[in-house]
Nucleic acid binder design. Structure first.
Lengths: 122, 122
DNA sequence: ATTTATTATCGCAAATGTACGATGAATGAT
DNA sequence: ATCATTCATCGTACATTTGCGATAATAAAT
């Protein structure tokens, strides 16, 4: 693998934002998080019932969300109750916010540039 | 591949949010977007100078960002000037906002649950 | 001690992602 | 017409992701 040569070191918040984004980069995981937001918490089995996916697949998505820090699991034998990890959820919220709200003053008067740029490279 | 059996149809905004998130799921692409935000627009070559990556690699990341709709390119031969696609950037901003701000009233009084849940499953 | 319920993990297969160098395409300049 | 510049695309190699079924792990209940 040639990528070993190039493991760029980015700012920590850049890495962290990318990790969060990556975890959010699958519709099933977005849906799981939406579910957790609306239901407060729920068990793995509840999610398996909601999504037409194998239990192992749901479990794997939960693992990824947990590894990214977006959710946390509490063992209630023989079940596991998953909830959003509020601390990291807030962190992610702040990071995404700062990405999208790096306000650029001219962004309000660039109507003409939007027209000009349209599909020139497609 | 067995996944062919399971191509779940999600709500369109779920799919779209996941697409945006996926495009943001790599630190180089976050850094490119940050650069575009601060510099307004810039040419491919400028980015190649900034990142210690092959030109083809940078080009590939730009392609993904363009496919996701987050940036757009304007041909200025022999260069190409890339800018953030404000329309979709706003759309993404709104989608991420709605994900993170599905306010849950009890989220302010769950101090004890945060303590209880801590690392039970690791 | 065995059984039951629930979930995580393993191993597999296919697809996708990430990096590179080499090549091709487009346009302006000579 | 040829050359130089810039960028996209192709082909390759390896890693990671995503899905599944099968199996292991855990703890309560019998």
């Amino acid at each position: 693998m040639k990528r070993t040569l190039q493991h760029i070191e980015y700012r920590e918040d850049t890495e962290e934002l990318a990790r969060f984004a990556k975890a959010l980069g699958h519709p099933t995981r977005i849906a799981i998080l939406r579910h957790l937001e609306s239901q407060a918490c729920c068990f793995t089995g509840d999610l398996v019932d909601v999504f037409p996916l194998a239990q192992s697949t749901v479990s794997q998505h939960l693992k990824e969300l947990k590894n990214a820090g977006l959710i946390q699991g509490e063992v209630k034998p023989p079940k596991v109750r998953y909830c959003i990890n509020q601390e990291n959820w807030n962190k992610a919220k702040i990071l995404f916010n700062s990405l999208f709200n790096h306000t650029r003053s001219y962004s309000l008067d660039t109507k003409q540039s939007e027209d000009k740029h349209a599909d020139k490279t497609n």
